[in-house]
């Protein structure tokens, strides 16, 4: 039999028979990325004089690095790590391959490319495979952010919980949900095992794997909410530092 295909839909960018609103999802994600990147660039490169207020340190500038002679934004030294962690994250990869690279823009929607496609087999995309190393760094950064949240509980020698404390803590919590639901972490803590019940140690790993799995099921949710809270936490501290907002104290001992 002749094997030529008369495919009903020619393969070109955006070509599809889908009649539903498939464009909305990539468009919204594109806008989300754009908004966040613009804000971070502005804060990190042009607006970096406002980094802390009282006990609160903006998560963009934590830990506070001060080097003699360094006259640029400290964010440059810090932000590459979360950026790399998120850029190699399995969820975000899906999001930007679709919304930015349009490969594919949506399911069953045509796109450019053709047979030369190499996926994540060649440089630079093969580097996605080092995600777990960025995870190790991200866990360290997360620990430091928790220290910041702890520090934010006292002010001038007194225990003081302000709105800022809540903001920083919620941010840490969501970042923890995101980081601890990481696919690479899920593999490392137990997913790599074939058998969960074959030894006591394996069973222990299984329990941890189950916790990570539960967070992992909502990985996209934690990815976006934590992106939102980290930006908001920074914005909140910035507004306090700039003297535009005042921090309300919720509890003082």
């Amino acid at each position: 039999m002749n094997q030529t295909t008369t495919s009903p839909v020619p393969a070109k960018l955006g070509a599809t028979s889908r009649s539903n609103a498939w464009l909305i999802e990539p468009a919204v994600i594109f806008c989300g990325f754009a908004l966040f990147v613009c804000y971070v660039t502005w804060r990190a490169l042009y607006d970096w004089q406002y980094i802390e207020w009282g006990p609160y340190l903006s998560p963009f500038f934590s830990p506070k690095l001060i080097f003699p002679g360094w006259q640029w934004s400290p964010a440059i030294l810090l932000l590459w790590e979360p950026a790399a962690f998120r850029a190699t994250c399995y969820y975000f990869r899906k999001a930007y391959y679709r919304a930015l690279f349009l490969d594919p823009p949506a399911c069953a929607v045509g796109h450019l490319g053709g047979h030369k496609y190499t996926g994540e087999n060649r440089f630079p995309l093969i580097l996605q495979n080092v995600h777990r190393y960025f995870l190790y760094l991200a866990l360290t950064v997360l620990a430091l952010l928790w220290v910041d949240a702890f520090v934010a509980c006292s002010y001038r020698g007194h225990i003081r919980i302000g709105v800022g404390t809540v903001v920083l803590t919620v941010n840490c919590l969501l970042l923890s949900f995101y980081t601890c639901g990481c696919h690479a972490l899920r593999h490392l803590v137990g997913g790599r095992l074939k058998c969960f019940s074959c030894s006591t140690a394996a069973h222990g790993q299984f329990k941890i794997w189950q916790c990570v799995t539960r967070l992992n099921e909502r990985h996209a949710l934690w990815a976006w909410t934590s992106l939102g809270t980290v930006a908001f936490a920074d914005f909140y501290v910035r507004m306090l530092a700039a003297g535009v907002w005042t921090d309300i104290s919720l509890l003082q001992l």
Binding site: Y90, Y97, C107, A108, G119, E120, I126, N216, H219
Partner: peptide, 23 residues
Amino acid sequence: GLGFCNITKCCTEVCPEEIHITD
């Protein structure tokens, strides 16, 4: 060719058995 997969998750979206193919 596992490396060709760029985990865009369409397989998971269409699976009628709701298998979490990608994750």
